[in-house]
Design a protein around this nucleic acid. Structure first.
Length: 956
DNA sequence: AAGAAAAAAAAA
């Protein structure tokens, strides 16, 4: 398509005089007509070379001439997005450029004369009003249908206008056209620009038909996102130089083509439905051990993905260790190909699990079929991704494939195994960085928060939506989220359904009611939709649930792979002496025990008592109150001692841990002692028991055994310790104990994974559980629980976007009451998790001479690096210090004390560190640990040791 | 009074 000098040729000198951009450093500027050209050209290139097929189809589906119309619409909207700059309210801002316009005949008052009223007419809003007026008056559209198109212009600064601001501007046409004799000139120029865009960008002949279109809100969103992306690229002065120098390179396709080559944005992934059988598919995509067989759940997931009427939501429920991750990736490849997704977003509950997933995704990408020269953009997305080694390597380009040129000159890539294989180059593209642009990378591994943000009313939300709309989404550990996060998740799923984004949800222990909620949210179904009753009633495990929009959900019931074992559960009275005695008896012949406590306080007091009994070397502590590097090292050491291939497994050892031992660590113990916890978590903990087949377990420990403690069992209704009740609530704890009653003390053993589903469903279902005399206590707990959950849901709604509105209803007011941008208030930050306030510090060491350094034991060359307080620390030292983050206990973040804590920490925020060249440390709170590990803060005495982590006592 | 783990932060 020719996008040459056409726009300029269509415009009068007056219209050509309108400016759009100005660089006050060098006086460079850009006329509006040129920025219109640039933006439109970039939008066309994005449409052709970057936008995933799914998004093109989504837009095309609602327009009379399909995707051809879709491209025209995107290009035209990008072309006109800054029309609001052709107003006195905008143009008066730069005197010298305003004078050019005045000389051409466009009169306007000075900036000062317009004054504060200028903010009534920000150029996005002004543009929307002008475009709506033009469609109505010049093209004869009914007023009510113009908003659905014009809101894309109105929202191009990240927030679609709301009704009050439209109303406020309505009475102020003087801001859009200088009143009096010159008004007609302004009107003509604005009309001229819009006429020229319509003609130049090929929509002149289309507007007649488009007035009958009702644009669904999801389409308005992705178009808004695309226009913003085009604007950001076209506003890059390096790519699109300002005038007068920039005028040399002409306008339109030549200028844009050169910029596009310089930008070098990787295109999106173009998946193809694999034709292989499931066995071949798994063998080619994953590095499986020799002789590995595809598990029934994996095969069923792929077959279901192939067979669903429309690619939609696939929920996979199966026990740990059934290869759900591989199943998800294989199913995602099929679904992505069917839906036309251009990438995958893999969402996990924590930064640690995201970090662990990242290299697995990279090696899967290496094995995906690819065409010559394909490049795929990849990103690790969470707040500390910058500290991750794999992500840093990718950024440094070290993962570039080693290309060898064979005789015919065809470039072949060499895979890690040495054999030649077509493989795409994986890149972390420089443009695709930052909070708002990163998600636009084709492949993203990140925390689920990054997905939930798609439900948060915040500026530039449309970019995040554009990013997810073009992907297939995998959500891991879907049971791990609370009511607050689930409110966001369900809302986001509704939008994903509307975009036709395929979603794979993974869970080991999903309550049936949640299963139904997820399915209905995605399908956009009403809460009482009868078709979803079977989804909630299904009791099989493993279980697949496939939901296509508008179709009846389909359930699949693959077999288990046959591995399984039994765990005997037993009640143990709470008390350190009781515990030590029992462990002494159980471990008399050696063996390794895991003791899981629900609070850090209990972990530390237990460890102290057990060290006295068994000696300091026989006891290890693990919880989250360690600095990041120590926490990682703790995990690493546990794997080394108790992992699958542990060569140095101790003869007799006890690990005392908080909930950190519950998740994602592939460790194996001979005996488990656990504080009472909700049954799904207790089952997770039991998963650390006899995980691997091992020779030579001591005879007494040959049967897997779990002792449940942390409860006063003598009470009429068992009474969990205080901390447990605070954390999990009496409701979940009591119901869990109730369903475990038949298993306790010589009852039948828990069958893993056979009993998992029934136990979870009984606890989280509404049915009667427990003996009759527990009933009043259970009922009371239920009421408290329901009130608490309702409160969480209410709080979540406060900043959660609504469901997609009726087709054709403009996005006006979509983000009204948003959390805003660059939000520095404490309340404005953590919005997708319902968390209490918390204080995070970077721990550094104060040396004998009073100087600061990174903690000496940090390892990997990070320890003992000097941190001068009167200068900017070296990048290495700063980065090492940033890897020593520590969250202070919530007690120190309570409202009455937090200000004092922060104020006292501020004495260590050194002025020289607060600079842009020091991104690792600027704005961080620093906690120096004095020699002897002690320090005091806001009346608390703090002690940090490598053995126990942070210990806090109240000195007052 | 105090009690888990978890996440998070620049635009045109």
């Amino acid at each position: 398509m020719s996008e040459g000098d056409g726009l300029r040729a269509r415009l009068s000198a007056q219209a050509l005089s309108v400016w759009a951009k100005h660089d006050k450093d060098n006086g460079g500027w850009l006329p509006l007509w040129c920025h219109m050209h640039d933006s439109a050209a970039v939008a066309g290139l994005l449409w052709d070379c970057w936008l995933p097929a799914r998004v093109r189809a989504l837009v095309g589906r609602v327009l009379p001439e399909g995707e051809v119309d879709g491209r025209r619409l995107a290009v035209w909207l990008a072309g006109v997005h800054d029309i609001g700059k052709a107003t006195p309210a905008f143009a008066c801002q730069v005197e010298v450029l305003a004078d050019r316009m005045r000389a051409a005949g466009l009169e306007m008052p000075s900036r000062r004369a317009v004054g504060a009223d200028r903010r009534l007419a920000p150029h996005g809003l002004a543009g929307q009003v002008l475009l709506q007026e033009w469609l109505e008056e010049q093209r004869g559209w009914p007023g009510r249908v113009t908003g659905q198109f014009a809101v894309v212009v109105g929202g191009h600064h990240g927030v679609p206008p709301d009704h009050p601001s439209l109303r406020d501007l309505d009475g102020r046409w003087d801001l859009l056209r200088t009143p009096g004799g010159n008004e007609g000139v302004w009107r003509r120029v604005q009309g001229e620009l819009l006429d020229a865009c319509a003609a130049e960008f090929g929509v002149e002949g289309r507007l007649g038909e488009w007035r009958g279109v009702r644009l669904p809100q999801p389409v308005q969103v992705v178009l808004s996102g695309l226009v913003i992306m085009a604007d950001w690229i076209a506003s890059n002065e390096d790519l699109f130089p300002y005038f007068p120098a920039g005028s040399e390179c002409g306008a339109g396709s030549g200028r844009a083509g050169a910029a596009w080559r310089d930008l070098d944005l990787p295109g999106s992934w173009r998946p193809v439905v694999p034709r292989d059988g499931v066995g071949e598919l798994f063998a080619s995509r994953f590095d499986l051990p020799a002789g590995a067989v595809v598990r029934p759940v994996q095969a069923a997931a792929v077959e279901t993905a192939r067979g669903m009427p429309e690619p939609g939501l696939l929920i996979v429920e199966a026990p740990m260790g059934e290869g759900k991750t591989e199943a998800a990736l294989a199913a995602a490849e099929v679904l992505a190909a069917r839906a036309g997704s251009g990438g995958v977003f893999f969402a996990l509950p924590t930064m640690a699990t995201s970090n662990a997933m990242f290299p697995r995704l990279l090696s899967w990408l290496d094995r995906l079929p690819a065409g010559d020269g394909d490049r795929l953009s990849v990103l690790l997305a969470h707040s500390k991704a910058a500290l991750n080694k794999d992500a840093a390597e990718l950024r440094a380009g070290s993962r570039k494939r080693i290309a060898s040129v064979d005789v015919d000159g065809a470039v072949q890539t060499v895979s890690a195994g040495g054999e030649a294989a077509a493989s795409a180059e994986l890149v972390a593209h420089h443009w695709l960085v930052g909070r708002k642009k990163g998600m636009l990378s084709s492949f993203v591994v990140g925390t689920v928060d990054q997905l939930l943000f798609a439900g948060l009313r915040a500026r530039h939300l449309v970019l995040r939506h554009l990013a997810v709309a073009g992907k297939t989404v995998v959500i891991d550990e879907a049971h791990a989220y609370d009511t607050y996060m689930n409110t966001y998740l369900d809302r986001v799923l509704g939008w994903l359904g509307a975009y036709g984004v395929p979603v794979v949800v993974l869970s080991a222990t999903l309550p049936a009611a949640r299963r139904r909620e997820l399915a209905q949210a995605y399908a956009g179904a009403a809460g009482d939709d009868e078709r979803f009753v079977p989804v909630e009633q299904a009791r099989e495990y493993p279980l697949l649930t496939a939901v296509s929009r508008g179709a009846v959900p389909v359930l699949g019931r693959p077999a288990v792979s046959g591995r399984g074992y039994e765990v005997r559960v037993e009640r143990l009275d709470d008390g350190l002496g009781v515990l030590a005695d029992r462990l002494e008896a159980e471990l008399a012949g050696g063996g390794c025990a895991l003791v899981v406590r629900n609070t850090v306080g209990r972990v530390l007091e237990t460890a102290k008592a057990l060290r006295e009994r068994f000696g300091p070397r026989a006891v290890t502590v693990a919880h989250s109150r360690f600095i990041d590097v120590d926490r990682a090292e703790n995990d690493h050491r546990l794997l080394e001692l108790f992992g699958r291939d542990a060569a140095v497994r101790p003869g007799r050892h006890i690990v005392v841990a908080s909930q950190v031992a519950e998740q994602s660590l592939d460790v194996d113990f001979d005996l488990l002692v656990s504080d009472a916890a909700p049954v799904d978590l207790l089952l997770q903990r039991m998963g650390r028991l006899h995980r691997h087949a091992r020779e030579g377990r001591p005879a007494v420990l040959r049967d897997a055994k779990c002792l449940v403690t942390g409860v006063d069992w003598s009470a009429a209704v068992p009474k969990p310790v205080r901390g447990s009740e605070f954390i999990y609530g009496r409701h979940a704890l009591l119901r869990s104990l109730a369903v475990l009653l038949p298993f306790f003390d010589g009852g039948r053993p828990v069958d893993l994974p056979g009993d998992i589903s029934a136990l979870v469903q009984d606890v989280y279902g509404g049915g009667q559980v427990g003996p009759a005399d527990w009933a009043p206590a259970l009922e009371e707990a239920r009421l408290v629980h329901e009130k608490l959950q309702a409160g969480k849901a209410d709080r979540a709604e406060q900043f959660c976007i609504g469901e997609a509105g009726k087709d054709g209803r403009p996005l006006i007011g979509w983000l009204a009451g948003s959390v805003g941008d660059a939000d520095d208030t404490r309340a404005g930050r953590a919005q997708v998790r319902d968390s209490e306030e918390c204080v995070e510090v970077l721990v550094v060491e104060e040396l004998g001479d009073g100087s600061l350094a990174t903690v000496h034991w940090a390892g990997e060359g990070r320890g003992g690096l000097a941190l001068p307080t009167d200068a900017v620390p070296s990048p290495e030292a700063a980065r090492a210090a940033a890897a020593c983050g520590l969250r202070l206990p919530v007690a120190m973040a309570k409202p009455h004390i937090v200000d004092r804590v922060v104020a006292e920490l501020k004495q260590f925020s050194f002025e020289k560190w607060q600079t842009k060249e020091n991104p690792w440390l600027a704005g961080q709170l620093i906690l120096p640990i004095r020699p002897g590990c002690q320090t005091s803060l806001a009346g608390f005495r703090l002690m940090y040791t490598r053995e126990n982590g942070l210990e806090v006592s109240n000195a007052r």
